[in-house]
């Protein structure tokens, strides 16, 4: 699920950036630092959409670095248990398959794949129904449901299922 929230961060800026475009430098450094990171609490920071305010800078003794408290708006993505996501399959093996929904990785074990789909090994390993009409392989797009999340301080990993109504392949690259 996506959220638009305000976060705060203390930015350290090198003295060489002090000048006319200090603020631009600060913002670009913030984007570089923050976007794409993951915190267990808020999820993945997808994008910074704006700066709320920049507080007073504090010059560090010895280094000359200046610390600015920056409040910024950002879009975060946090997967929840029970959430339905669309994801791209990245890897298929005997144990199940891995998929990615943006930054989050999801594992679907073979027990959570419908019983009528069987693993086919080969140079393009895949899960296929007996009539061959549905095939899950690398780069397939699947709709899945998250049934468990593992949230570490800097990492979120999910397990999902496609063994439910309206879940499964939504777009097959091989067919296209």
């Amino acid at each position: 699920m996506f959220f638009h929230i305000v976060l705060e961060r203390n930015m350290q800026l090198h003295p060489r950036h002090f000048g006319r475009n200090l603020r631009e430098n600060l913002v670009s450094k913030l984007m570089k630092d923050v976007e794409g990171t993951c915190s267990g609490r808020h999820g993945f920071v997808v994008a910074i959409t704006g700066i709320e305010n920049v507080g007073k800078g504090l010059i560090r003794d010895g280094t000359g670095f200046v610390t600015f408290p920056v409040k910024y708006q950002c879009v975060v993505f946090r997967p929840f248990k029970g959430e339905i996501l669309e994801a791209v399959v990245t890897m298929v093996n005997k144990m199940g398959f891995f998929a990615e929904a943006g930054p989050v990785q999801i594992f679907v074990s073979n027990h959570l794949i419908p019983d009528d789909m069987e693993f086919q090994s080969g140079d393009m390993p895949n899960y296929t129904t007996s009539d061959g009409s549905v095939k899950i392989q690398k780069d397939s797009e699947v709709r899945l449901k998250i049934i468990g999340t593992r949230v570490d301080a800097t990492e979120i990993f999910c397990i999902g299922t496609i063994k439910d109504d309206f879940l499964g392949v939504i777009n097959d690259p091989a067919a296209a």
Partner: peptide, 16 residues
């Protein structure tokens, strides 16, 4: 558990 799956995949075969 399956939540550890990412750490368990090996590069040489398809097993954990």
């Amino acid at each position: 558990t399956a939540l550890d799956a990412l750490r368990l995949i090996s590069l040489d075969d398809e097993y954990f």
